[in-house]
Amino acid sequence: MDDRNVQYPNRFQLTKVDGTDDIYEIIPAPGKVYTEGTFINKFALLKDTTAALFGLGVDNVPDDVLVFLGKYNQYWWKRRTSGFALVPNLGAEQIQCVEWQGRPNSGSYTPTNHIRYSPTVTVHEDLSVTLNNPQVLTFTPNGIGSNLQVLQGKYFYLTKQVNSVAHGNWGNIDYKTTPANVIYYASGAPTGKQNSADSEDYTYVAKAIPAKTVTGKKELHDGPWEYVRSSNRNAYPDSGIHDGYEYQFLGIPFENSVLPLRVETGSYVGTGTYGINNPCSLTLPFEPKLFIVGDTDGCKGTKGNYLYFALPIFLGDTYEKISWKYGGTTATQYTLMKREGSTISWYINFTGSGSDQLNGTGTTYYYYAIG
């Protein structure tokens, strides 16, 4: 942008408006104009295309851009809800028997066996389980197949449980009011054997289904990560679980974004030790994001003997399994590696030698780190 440069920047001419006594027009009288300067308007201050780069619209003003940038000069944390949730727990599969009091051999018949069912349940603090807004299924004569279809993928109360299909008169039990336990009948689960038996007055039909018993349990539940920020460095905890949230401090994005790429190279001579009680360890001048170590020939690629590629960005302060190739073949060995700040440590957990741990006696190994 250019400033306006004129001979008389503060000179104006007053001209009375025709037909008035006290109204004047102010007409600039700058004299000689050396530079016109940039005309101040929306285009000069915030182009539409620039606003779009910040996710802003055509009605936004330059201050909105400053607000957008300013938040990245604050302290940032990420957090997620963390705590225990009460969830249903399916037990071992059992054979449950669903029975209906079938059609009468004579006389009239009104079905009285009912099952209360729902697609969801609530687990309470005492780990008891109840159905949510249950519906009532009345078993009807000659309808056992359709009844079982209704119950598939549902939780329901069952007052009588047997381990095989067997004849028995459940009488006028109302399953709405006398629930003994909750079971779950999975969608697509096969039905078992169907039995029927005749008595003097009724035909009874029973059919077995492979349902699962349902109990309650407490389960650790973490929600999705969200980002919070503040100009106050102590607005949120840096780590750990506080008031139901797990926190991680991220720093100031602007400061993090201007850190230069750091590279460190070096070498060490192996001592021949290996195993869990003799880990290799290297302390670097920064926390590495990429770490490579190998012997001379392996690094040059002429033999491909031993070569480690590790991404410690995924590592924490406990050992994690890392895979690598041996002797240029497809055989895969494993080692354990961890990162504590700027220190990388590793060891093999199989019977081998110092060379297998990149610590062969008298062998020179070279490492590369990027952070």
Rank of each mutant, 00 (worst) to 15 (best):
G153R: 02
G352I: 03
P9R: 08
Y347A: 02
I344T: 01
G327I: 04
K47Y: 04
Y326A: 06
T130K: 12
I348S: 00
T49H: 09
N234P: 01
I313M: 12
I40G: 07
A211K: 00
M1D: 10
S353T: 13
G327A: 12
L315W: 09
K193Q: 15
I276K: 14
L86I: 05
N359V: 00
G192W: 03
A235L: 03
D317T: 10
S230T: 07
T120Q: 12
S353K: 03
T178D: 15
A92L: 11
V98K: 02
F12C: 08
F84K: 10
E255C: 13
T20R: 01
P104G: 14
V205F: 06
E255G: 10
D238E: 13
S257C: 09
N256D: 11
G251F: 06
K42F: 04
Q7P: 00
C299K: 12
D356W: 08
Y365M: 02
I115E: 00
G143R: 07
D238F: 12
Y268V: 04
P119K: 02
L127T: 04
V182Q: 03
I276W: 07
A369P: 01
I27E: 12
C299W: 09
S108Q: 08
E25C: 11
P141G: 08
T50N: 10
P30H: 02
G240H: 08
T271N: 15
R339P: 00
I322Y: 06
T140D: 11
G304W: 02
G188D: 05
R103Y: 11
N132H: 05
L336Q: 12
Q135R: 10
P119H: 03
A189E: 04
K16V: 14
H242I: 13
W100Y: 14
S146A: 15
G301M: 06
H114R: 15
A206N: 09
Y308I: 11
D48L: 07
G192A: 09
G57R: 10
F309I: 09
G294L: 05
I183Q: 04
W346C: 00
R262T: 11
G371Q: 08
P104C: 13
A44V: 08
T122E: 07
T329Q: 10
D295S: 10
L86A: 09
F350K: 06
P237Y: 05
